[in-house]
Design a protein around this nucleic acid. Sequence first.
DNA 1: TTCACTGGTCGTCAGTTGACGAATAAATAT
DNA 2: ATATTTATTCGTCAACTGACGACCAGTGAA
Lengths: 202, 202
Amino acid sequence: MPFNERRAQILDVASEFFAENGLAGQTRQLAEKCGISQRLLYRFFPTKEDLLKEVYDQEILGAFKAVWFVELQDRTRPVSERLDAFYRDYLRSTLTRKWLRLFLYASLAEAKMAPDYISAIVMQLLETVMREVAHERGVDLPEDPALLREMAWTLHGAISHYAIRRHIYQSSLSLSEDQVVSMHVRVFLAGFEDMVKMCVGR
Amino acid sequence: MPFNERRAQILDVASEFFAENGLAGQTRQLAEKCGISQRLLYRFFPTKEDLLKEVYDQEILGAFKAVWFVELQDRTRPVSERLDAFYRDYLRSTLTRKWLRLFLYASLAEAKMAPDYISAIVMQLLETVMREVAHERGVDLPEDPALLREMAWTLHGAISHYAIRRHIYQSSLSLSEDQVVSMHVRVFLAGFEDMVKMCVGR
DNA sequence: TTCACTGGTCGTCAGTTGACGAATAAATAT
DNA sequence: ATATTTATTCGTCAACTGACGACCAGTGAA
Protein backbone atom coordinates (compact mmCIF):
# COMPACT_ATOMS: atom_id res chain seq x y z
CA MET A 1 0.00 0.00 0.00
CA PRO A 2 1.34 3.47 -0.89
CA PHE A 3 2.89 5.54 1.86
CA ASN A 4 0.30 8.30 2.18
CA GLU A 5 -2.66 5.99 1.95
CA ARG A 6 -1.37 3.67 4.64
CA ARG A 7 -0.45 6.60 6.82
CA ALA A 8 -3.94 8.05 6.51
CA GLN A 9 -5.48 4.68 7.26
CA ILE A 10 -3.36 4.32 10.41
CA LEU A 11 -4.37 7.77 11.60
CA ASP A 12 -7.98 6.91 11.05
CA VAL A 13 -7.89 3.63 12.90
CA ALA A 14 -5.73 5.20 15.61
CA SER A 15 -8.21 7.97 16.37
CA GLU A 16 -10.96 5.43 16.90
CA PHE A 17 -8.65 3.17 18.87
CA PHE A 18 -7.30 5.80 21.28
CA ALA A 19 -10.76 7.29 21.75
CA GLU A 20 -12.00 3.93 22.97
CA ASN A 21 -8.96 2.64 24.83
CA GLY A 22 -7.43 5.84 26.11
CA LEU A 23 -4.14 7.41 25.14
CA ALA A 24 -2.38 4.58 26.96
CA GLY A 25 -3.69 2.03 24.46
CA GLN A 26 -0.95 -0.29 23.27
CA THR A 27 0.74 0.06 19.92
CA ARG A 28 0.60 -3.70 19.41
CA GLN A 29 -3.17 -3.75 19.68
CA LEU A 30 -3.44 -0.74 17.42
CA ALA A 31 -1.26 -2.42 14.80
CA GLU A 32 -3.39 -5.53 14.94
CA LYS A 33 -6.49 -3.42 14.40
CA CYS A 34 -4.80 -1.87 11.38
CA GLY A 35 -3.93 -5.31 10.06
CA ILE A 36 -0.20 -4.60 10.05
CA SER A 37 2.80 -5.45 12.18
CA GLN A 38 3.62 -3.28 15.18
CA ARG A 39 7.00 -2.41 13.73
CA LEU A 40 5.43 -0.79 10.69
CA LEU A 41 3.81 1.92 12.79
CA TYR A 42 7.29 3.26 13.49
CA ARG A 43 7.94 3.78 9.79
CA PHE A 44 5.22 6.43 9.75
CA PHE A 45 5.47 7.90 13.23
CA PRO A 46 8.80 8.18 15.06
CA THR A 47 7.20 7.69 18.47
CA LYS A 48 3.80 6.97 19.92
CA GLU A 49 3.77 10.55 21.18
CA ASP A 50 4.00 11.84 17.62
CA LEU A 51 1.16 9.63 16.50
CA LEU A 52 -0.99 10.87 19.36
CA LYS A 53 -0.25 14.46 18.49
CA GLU A 54 -1.32 13.97 14.90
CA VAL A 55 -4.48 12.19 15.94
CA TYR A 56 -5.27 15.08 18.23
CA ASP A 57 -4.67 17.73 15.59
CA GLN A 58 -6.74 15.93 12.99
CA GLU A 59 -9.66 14.80 15.13
CA ILE A 60 -9.95 17.49 17.77
CA LEU A 61 -8.91 20.65 16.00
CA GLY A 62 -10.33 19.54 12.65
CA ALA A 63 -13.83 19.28 14.08
CA PHE A 64 -14.48 23.02 14.22
CA LYS A 65 -16.07 24.68 11.20
CA ALA A 66 -15.35 28.25 10.18
CA VAL A 67 -18.78 28.59 8.61
CA TRP A 68 -20.40 28.62 12.04
CA PHE A 69 -19.18 32.15 12.62
CA VAL A 70 -20.79 33.31 9.39
CA GLU A 71 -24.09 31.61 10.05
CA LEU A 72 -24.29 32.80 13.63
CA GLN A 73 -23.94 36.40 12.46
CA ASP A 74 -26.50 36.23 9.65
CA ARG A 75 -28.87 38.86 10.98
CA THR A 76 -31.52 38.22 8.37
CA ARG A 77 -32.61 35.27 10.51
CA PRO A 78 -33.96 35.38 14.07
CA VAL A 79 -31.31 34.55 16.63
CA SER A 80 -33.30 31.69 18.14
CA GLU A 81 -33.26 29.99 14.76
CA ARG A 82 -29.54 30.60 14.34
CA LEU A 83 -28.72 29.19 17.77
CA ASP A 84 -30.92 26.19 17.18
CA ALA A 85 -29.26 25.45 13.87
CA PHE A 86 -25.77 26.02 15.15
CA TYR A 87 -26.07 23.81 18.21
CA ARG A 88 -27.72 21.01 16.29
CA ASP A 89 -24.79 20.95 13.95
CA TYR A 90 -22.24 21.41 16.72
CA LEU A 91 -23.70 18.50 18.62
CA ARG A 92 -23.77 16.25 15.61
CA SER A 93 -20.41 17.03 14.09
CA THR A 94 -18.19 18.03 17.00
CA LEU A 95 -19.59 16.68 20.25
CA THR A 96 -19.41 13.10 19.05
CA ARG A 97 -18.37 10.09 21.07
CA LYS A 98 -14.96 10.01 19.46
CA TRP A 99 -14.29 13.72 19.89
CA LEU A 100 -15.42 13.85 23.50
CA ARG A 101 -13.50 10.80 24.57
CA LEU A 102 -10.28 11.96 22.94
CA PHE A 103 -10.68 15.42 24.35
CA LEU A 104 -11.38 14.19 27.86
CA TYR A 105 -8.54 11.69 27.83
CA ALA A 106 -6.20 14.42 26.65
CA SER A 107 -7.46 16.93 29.20
CA LEU A 108 -7.20 14.49 32.07
CA ALA A 109 -3.67 13.59 31.07
CA GLU A 110 -2.89 17.29 31.05
CA ALA A 111 -1.61 16.69 27.58
CA LYS A 112 -1.23 20.23 26.41
CA MET A 113 -1.19 19.10 22.83
CA ALA A 114 -2.68 22.19 21.21
CA PRO A 115 -3.89 24.00 24.23
CA ASP A 116 -4.85 27.42 23.06
CA TYR A 117 -6.44 26.86 19.68
CA ILE A 118 -9.53 25.21 21.10
CA SER A 119 -10.05 27.60 23.93
CA ALA A 120 -9.59 30.52 21.54
CA ILE A 121 -12.14 29.14 19.07
CA VAL A 122 -14.68 28.45 21.80
CA MET A 123 -14.14 31.90 23.27
CA GLN A 124 -14.93 33.39 19.88
CA LEU A 125 -18.07 31.31 19.66
CA LEU A 126 -19.23 32.35 23.11
CA GLU A 127 -18.69 36.03 22.43
CA THR A 128 -20.45 35.78 19.09
CA VAL A 129 -23.48 34.17 20.69
CA MET A 130 -23.68 36.92 23.29
CA ARG A 131 -23.25 39.70 20.77
CA GLU A 132 -25.93 38.37 18.45
CA VAL A 133 -28.55 37.83 21.13
CA ALA A 134 -27.84 41.23 22.69
CA HIS A 135 -28.13 42.91 19.31
CA GLU A 136 -31.49 41.39 18.51
CA ARG A 137 -32.81 42.24 21.97
CA GLY A 138 -31.32 45.72 21.99
CA VAL A 139 -29.58 44.94 25.27
CA ASP A 140 -26.34 46.50 26.49
CA LEU A 141 -23.69 44.00 27.54
CA PRO A 142 -21.16 44.36 30.34
CA GLU A 143 -17.56 45.15 29.39
CA ASP A 144 -15.72 42.30 31.07
CA PRO A 145 -15.18 39.60 28.41
CA ALA A 146 -14.71 36.89 31.01
CA LEU A 147 -18.10 37.67 32.48
CA LEU A 148 -19.60 37.76 29.02
CA ARG A 149 -18.25 34.34 28.17
CA GLU A 150 -19.43 32.88 31.43
CA MET A 151 -22.94 33.97 30.51
CA ALA A 152 -22.76 32.21 27.18
CA TRP A 153 -21.46 29.13 28.97
CA THR A 154 -24.87 28.73 30.62
CA LEU A 155 -26.06 27.59 27.20
CA HIS A 156 -22.85 26.19 25.72
CA GLY A 157 -21.98 24.26 28.86
CA ALA A 158 -25.45 22.82 29.25
CA ILE A 159 -25.34 21.43 25.72
CA SER A 160 -21.78 20.18 26.11
CA HIS A 161 -22.79 18.40 29.26
CA TYR A 162 -25.71 16.83 27.49
CA ALA A 163 -23.23 15.37 25.01
CA ILE A 164 -21.07 14.09 27.86
CA ARG A 165 -24.10 12.41 29.42
CA ARG A 166 -24.97 10.73 26.16
CA HIS A 167 -21.53 9.65 25.07
CA ILE A 168 -19.56 9.20 28.27
CA TYR A 169 -22.10 8.34 30.94
CA GLN A 170 -24.49 6.66 28.49
CA SER A 171 -27.54 8.38 29.89
CA SER A 172 -30.06 10.99 28.69
CA LEU A 173 -30.78 8.84 25.67
CA SER A 174 -34.57 8.93 25.52
CA LEU A 175 -35.15 12.36 23.97
CA SER A 176 -34.02 13.38 20.51
CA GLU A 177 -30.98 15.63 20.21
CA ASP A 178 -32.94 18.30 18.39
CA GLN A 179 -35.61 18.44 21.05
CA VAL A 180 -33.00 18.85 23.77
CA VAL A 181 -31.21 21.59 21.86
CA SER A 182 -34.42 23.53 21.41
CA MET A 183 -35.14 23.28 25.10
CA HIS A 184 -31.73 24.58 26.11
CA VAL A 185 -31.83 27.44 23.62
CA ARG A 186 -35.28 28.39 24.81
CA VAL A 187 -34.33 28.54 28.49
CA PHE A 188 -31.26 30.57 27.66
CA LEU A 189 -33.12 33.11 25.57
CA ALA A 190 -35.98 33.47 28.04
CA GLY A 191 -33.55 34.14 30.87
CA PHE A 192 -31.20 36.31 28.88
CA GLU A 193 -32.33 39.80 29.96
CA ASP A 194 -32.55 38.74 33.57
CA MET A 195 -29.06 37.29 33.51
CA VAL A 196 -27.52 40.37 31.91
CA LYS A 197 -29.35 42.68 34.30
CA MET A 198 -28.05 40.77 37.28
CA CYS A 199 -24.49 40.84 36.00
CA VAL A 200 -24.51 44.53 35.16
CA GLY A 201 -25.88 45.24 38.62
CA ARG A 202 -22.78 43.86 40.30
CA MET B 1 1.00 1.68 62.80
CA PRO B 2 -2.27 -0.11 63.64
CA PHE B 3 -4.08 -1.96 60.90
CA ASN B 4 -7.16 0.23 60.50
CA GLU B 5 -5.25 3.46 60.67
CA ARG B 6 -2.78 2.43 58.00
CA ARG B 7 -5.57 1.11 55.83
CA ALA B 8 -7.44 4.39 56.07
CA GLN B 9 -4.30 6.32 55.27
CA ILE B 10 -3.66 4.22 52.19
CA LEU B 11 -7.22 4.76 50.97
CA ASP B 12 -6.83 8.46 51.48
CA VAL B 13 -3.55 8.74 49.62
CA ALA B 14 -4.83 6.38 46.95
CA SER B 15 -7.88 8.49 46.14
CA GLU B 16 -5.70 11.51 45.60
CA PHE B 17 -3.17 9.47 43.66
CA PHE B 18 -5.60 7.78 41.26
CA ALA B 19 -7.50 11.03 40.75
CA GLU B 20 -4.30 12.67 39.52
CA ASN B 21 -2.65 9.78 37.70
CA GLY B 22 -5.65 7.85 36.42
CA LEU B 23 -6.82 4.41 37.42
CA ALA B 24 -3.79 2.99 35.64
CA GLY B 25 -1.43 4.63 38.13
CA GLN B 26 1.22 2.22 39.36
CA THR B 27 1.09 0.53 42.74
CA ARG B 28 4.79 1.16 43.25
CA GLN B 29 4.38 4.90 42.95
CA LEU B 30 1.35 4.80 45.20
CA ALA B 31 3.29 2.89 47.84
CA GLU B 32 6.10 5.39 47.66
CA LYS B 33 3.63 8.22 48.17
CA CYS B 34 2.30 6.38 51.22
CA GLY B 35 5.81 5.96 52.55
CA ILE B 36 5.57 2.16 52.60
CA SER B 37 6.77 -0.74 50.51
CA GLN B 38 4.73 -1.84 47.53
CA ARG B 39 4.33 -5.27 49.06
CA LEU B 40 2.51 -3.87 52.06
CA LEU B 41 -0.38 -2.62 49.92
CA TYR B 42 -1.26 -6.24 49.29
CA ARG B 43 -1.68 -6.87 52.99
CA PHE B 44 -4.65 -4.53 52.98
CA PHE B 45 -6.09 -5.02 49.51
CA PRO B 46 -5.95 -8.38 47.72
CA THR B 47 -5.67 -6.78 44.27
CA LYS B 48 -5.38 -3.35 42.75
CA GLU B 49 -8.93 -3.80 41.50
CA ASP B 50 -10.19 -4.12 45.06
CA LEU B 51 -8.35 -1.02 46.15
CA LEU B 52 -9.86 0.93 43.25
CA LYS B 53 -13.32 -0.25 44.12
CA GLU B 54 -12.97 0.93 47.71
CA VAL B 55 -11.60 4.28 46.62
CA TYR B 56 -14.56 4.66 44.31
CA ASP B 57 -17.13 3.77 46.94
CA GLN B 58 -15.61 6.09 49.52
CA GLU B 59 -14.84 9.09 47.35
CA ILE B 60 -17.53 9.01 44.70
CA LEU B 61 -20.55 7.61 46.49
CA GLY B 62 -19.64 9.20 49.81
CA ALA B 63 -19.81 12.69 48.35
CA PHE B 64 -23.60 12.87 48.18
CA LYS B 65 -25.44 14.28 51.19
CA ALA B 66 -28.91 13.15 52.21
CA VAL B 67 -29.66 16.50 53.77
CA TRP B 68 -29.87 18.09 50.34
CA PHE B 69 -33.24 16.49 49.75
CA VAL B 70 -34.59 17.95 52.95
CA GLU B 71 -33.27 21.44 52.31
CA LEU B 72 -34.46 21.46 48.72
CA GLN B 73 -38.00 20.72 49.87
CA ASP B 74 -38.14 23.28 52.66
CA ARG B 75 -41.03 25.34 51.32
CA THR B 76 -40.70 28.04 53.92
CA ARG B 77 -37.89 29.46 51.80
CA PRO B 78 -38.15 30.78 48.22
CA VAL B 79 -37.02 28.23 45.67
CA SER B 80 -34.42 30.55 44.17
CA GLU B 81 -32.71 30.70 47.55
CA ARG B 82 -32.88 26.95 47.99
CA LEU B 83 -31.40 26.29 44.56
CA ASP B 84 -28.66 28.81 45.16
CA ALA B 85 -27.73 27.26 48.48
CA PHE B 86 -27.89 23.71 47.20
CA TYR B 87 -25.75 24.27 44.14
CA ARG B 88 -23.15 26.24 46.07
CA ASP B 89 -22.75 23.35 48.43
CA TYR B 90 -22.91 20.75 45.67
CA LEU B 91 -20.18 22.54 43.77
CA ARG B 92 -17.96 22.86 46.79
CA SER B 93 -18.36 19.45 48.32
CA THR B 94 -19.08 17.11 45.41
CA LEU B 95 -17.91 18.66 42.16
CA THR B 96 -14.32 18.90 43.37
CA ARG B 97 -11.21 18.24 41.34
CA LYS B 98 -10.73 14.87 43.00
CA TRP B 99 -14.32 13.76 42.56
CA LEU B 100 -14.58 14.85 38.95
CA ARG B 101 -11.31 13.29 37.88
CA LEU B 102 -12.08 9.97 39.55
CA PHE B 103 -15.57 9.94 38.12
CA LEU B 104 -14.41 10.77 34.60
CA TYR B 105 -11.59 8.24 34.65
CA ALA B 106 -14.02 5.61 35.85
CA SER B 107 -16.65 6.55 33.28
CA LEU B 108 -14.20 6.56 30.40
CA ALA B 109 -12.87 3.19 31.45
CA GLU B 110 -16.44 1.94 31.46
CA ALA B 111 -15.72 0.77 34.95
CA LYS B 112 -19.21 -0.01 36.08
CA MET B 113 -18.11 0.12 39.69
CA ALA B 114 -21.36 1.27 41.26
CA PRO B 115 -23.24 2.39 38.22
CA ASP B 116 -26.77 2.81 39.36
CA TYR B 117 -26.43 4.45 42.75
CA ILE B 118 -25.17 7.69 41.32
CA SER B 119 -27.58 7.92 38.46
CA ALA B 120 -30.42 7.13 40.86
CA ILE B 121 -29.37 9.82 43.31
CA VAL B 122 -28.98 12.42 40.58
CA MET B 123 -32.33 11.48 39.10
CA GLN B 124 -33.93 12.09 42.48
CA LEU B 125 -32.24 15.47 42.72
CA LEU B 126 -33.40 16.46 39.26
CA GLU B 127 -36.98 15.49 39.93
CA THR B 128 -36.95 17.29 43.26
CA VAL B 129 -35.71 20.48 41.65
CA MET B 130 -38.46 20.37 39.04
CA ARG B 131 -41.19 19.60 41.57
CA GLU B 132 -40.16 22.43 43.86
CA VAL B 133 -39.93 25.10 41.19
CA ALA B 134 -43.21 23.99 39.61
CA HIS B 135 -44.94 24.09 42.98
CA GLU B 136 -43.81 27.61 43.77
CA ARG B 137 -44.81 28.80 40.31
CA GLY B 138 -48.09 26.91 40.28
CA VAL B 139 -47.10 25.26 37.02
CA ASP B 140 -48.27 21.86 35.81
CA LEU B 141 -45.47 19.53 34.78
CA PRO B 142 -45.54 16.95 31.99
CA GLU B 143 -45.89 13.30 32.93
CA ASP B 144 -42.83 11.80 31.29
CA PRO B 145 -40.13 11.58 33.96
CA ALA B 146 -37.34 11.43 31.36
CA LEU B 147 -38.52 14.71 29.87
CA LEU B 148 -38.80 16.18 33.34
CA ARG B 149 -35.26 15.25 34.19
CA GLU B 150 -33.93 16.57 30.93
CA MET B 151 -35.43 19.93 31.83
CA ALA B 152 -33.66 19.98 35.17
CA TRP B 153 -30.46 19.03 33.39
CA THR B 154 -30.45 22.46 31.73
CA LEU B 155 -29.46 23.79 35.14
CA HIS B 156 -27.71 20.78 36.64
CA GLY B 157 -25.68 20.13 33.52
CA ALA B 158 -24.64 23.74 33.11
CA ILE B 159 -23.27 23.80 36.64
CA SER B 160 -21.62 20.39 36.29
CA HIS B 161 -19.95 21.58 33.12
CA TYR B 162 -18.73 24.68 34.89
CA ALA B 163 -17.01 22.40 37.38
CA ILE B 164 -15.47 20.40 34.55
CA ARG B 165 -14.15 23.59 32.98
CA ARG B 166 -12.58 24.66 36.25
CA HIS B 167 -11.13 21.39 37.38
CA ILE B 168 -10.43 19.47 34.17
CA TYR B 169 -9.89 22.08 31.49
CA GLN B 170 -8.47 24.68 33.92
CA SER B 171 -10.55 27.49 32.50
CA SER B 172 -13.43 29.69 33.69
CA LEU B 173 -11.39 30.68 36.72
CA SER B 174 -11.92 34.42 36.86
CA LEU B 175 -15.40 34.60 38.39
CA SER B 176 -16.30 33.37 41.86
CA GLU B 177 -18.17 30.08 42.16
CA ASP B 178 -21.06 31.74 43.97
CA GLN B 179 -21.50 34.34 41.28
CA VAL B 180 -21.60 31.70 38.58
CA VAL B 181 -24.12 29.59 40.49
CA SER B 182 -26.42 32.58 40.93
CA MET B 183 -26.23 33.31 37.24
CA HIS B 184 -27.12 29.78 36.23
CA VAL B 185 -29.99 29.55 38.71
CA ARG B 186 -31.33 32.87 37.50
CA VAL B 187 -31.36 31.89 33.83
CA PHE B 188 -33.01 28.62 34.67
CA LEU B 189 -35.77 30.17 36.75
CA ALA B 190 -36.44 32.96 34.26
CA GLY B 191 -36.80 30.46 31.44
CA PHE B 192 -38.71 27.88 33.42
CA GLU B 193 -42.30 28.60 32.33
CA ASP B 194 -41.25 28.92 28.72
CA MET B 195 -39.41 25.63 28.81
CA VAL B 196 -42.30 23.75 30.40
CA LYS B 197 -44.81 25.27 27.98
CA MET B 198 -42.73 24.19 25.03
CA CYS B 199 -42.40 20.65 26.33
CA VAL B 200 -46.08 20.28 27.15
CA GLY B 201 -46.91 21.54 23.70
CA ARG B 202 -45.21 18.61 22.02
C1' DT C 1 12.42 -17.55 78.05
C1' DT C 2 9.66 -18.76 74.58
C1' DC C 3 6.08 -18.56 71.37
C1' DA C 4 3.10 -16.47 68.22
C1' DC C 5 1.08 -12.61 66.15
C1' DT C 6 1.30 -8.29 63.65
C1' DG C 7 3.38 -4.75 60.79
C1' DG C 8 6.77 -4.48 57.68
C1' DT C 9 10.67 -5.20 53.76
C1' DC C 10 13.38 -7.70 50.01
C1' DG C 11 13.70 -9.87 45.99
C1' DT C 12 11.71 -11.97 42.20
C1' DC C 13 8.52 -13.96 38.65
C1' DA C 14 5.80 -13.70 34.58
C1' DG C 15 3.71 -10.91 31.45
C1' DT C 16 3.71 -6.16 29.15
C1' DT C 17 5.35 -2.32 26.54
C1' DG C 18 7.71 1.17 23.49
C1' DA C 19 11.27 0.98 20.49
C1' DC C 20 14.36 -0.65 16.95
C1' DG C 21 18.19 -3.54 14.13
C1' DA C 22 18.20 -6.53 10.65
C1' DA C 23 16.28 -9.42 7.31
C1' DT C 24 12.80 -10.17 3.59
C1' DA C 25 9.56 -9.34 -0.13
C1' DA C 26 7.74 -6.45 -3.63
C1' DA C 27 7.94 -2.90 -6.87
C1' DT C 28 10.28 0.28 -9.77
C1' DA C 29 14.02 1.99 -12.45
C1' DT C 30 17.98 1.06 -15.46
C1' DA D 1 17.83 -9.18 -16.15
C1' DT D 2 19.82 -6.44 -12.69
C1' DA D 3 20.09 -2.82 -9.35
C1' DT D 4 17.78 0.02 -6.14
C1' DT D 5 14.41 1.67 -3.50
C1' DT D 6 10.28 0.95 -0.74
C1' DA D 7 6.94 -1.70 2.10
C1' DT D 8 6.72 -4.95 5.52
C1' DT D 9 7.88 -8.53 9.05
C1' DC D 10 10.61 -11.10 12.70
C1' DG D 11 12.81 -11.17 16.74
C1' DT D 12 14.51 -8.96 20.63
C1' DC D 13 16.01 -5.50 24.24
C1' DA D 14 15.39 -2.98 28.37
C1' DA D 15 12.32 -1.01 31.33
C1' DC D 16 8.07 -1.62 33.72
C1' DT D 17 4.12 -3.76 36.34
C1' DG D 18 0.92 -6.49 39.31
C1' DA D 19 1.47 -10.02 42.30
C1' DC D 20 3.48 -12.78 45.85
C1' DG D 21 6.69 -16.11 48.64
C1' DA D 22 9.84 -15.70 52.09
C1' DC D 23 11.85 -13.50 55.60
C1' DC D 24 12.52 -10.07 59.60
C1' DA D 25 11.56 -7.21 63.88
C1' DG D 26 9.06 -5.67 67.61
C1' DT D 27 5.46 -6.64 71.14
C1' DG D 28 2.84 -8.94 74.40
C1' DA D 29 1.11 -13.23 76.64
C1' DA D 30 2.22 -17.72 78.91
